[in-house]
């Protein structure tokens, strides 16, 4: 069985803690990744850039509508995800417009934060 573990946290409060403390938490993430890799549980995982970099994509009557910012309504629920490689945001948006849910729901496009590899 596969599971998706979604990480929710308060961006602003994370940003407000001292840099050394942030570094310690970052190290904890690295340890965690290493541990579950060793156990054979790890399939994939990424850190996301802050919500300020998000773009929400919808398609209405065949027209692509983009809005700045994250998905903010509660009528729809998270139903899945794709992790894709794209050369820039335009390509990522164009990939998002092909996902069926873009017509009735929406797709939030978030850049992945570059992080050093963990072995």
């Amino acid at each position: 069985m596969k599971y998706l573990l979604l990480i929710y946290e308060n961006e602003a409060s994370f940003a407000s803690i001292p840099e050394a403390e942030q570094g310690r938490i970052f190290g904890e993430y690295m340890d965690y990744t290493r541990r579950i890799k060793k156990n054979g549980n790890y399939i994939g995982g990424e850190a996301l850039e802050p919500v300020a970099t998000a773009t929400t994509v919808r398609v209405k009557d065949g027209k692509t509508l983009t809005t700045d910012g994250p998905f903010a309504e509660t009528r729809e629920q998270l139903g899945g995800f794709y992790l894709v490689e794209a050369k820039d945001l335009d390509e990522a948006i164009s990939l998002a417009t092909g996902i069926p849910a873009v017509r009735n729901g929406c797709i939030e496009v978030r850049p992945i934060m570059p992080t050093p590899p963990v072995d």
Partner: peptide, 24 residues
């Protein structure tokens, strides 16, 4: 500041959109 950060981080391309996207 926020707009420029988004251009950089989300990698908004610095280009003239091609073909069918131009009119839009």
């Amino acid at each position: 500041v926020r707009a420029k950060a988004k251009i950089r981080t989300a990698r908004i391309p610095y280009e003239v959109p091609g073909g069918d996207r131009l009119a839009d």
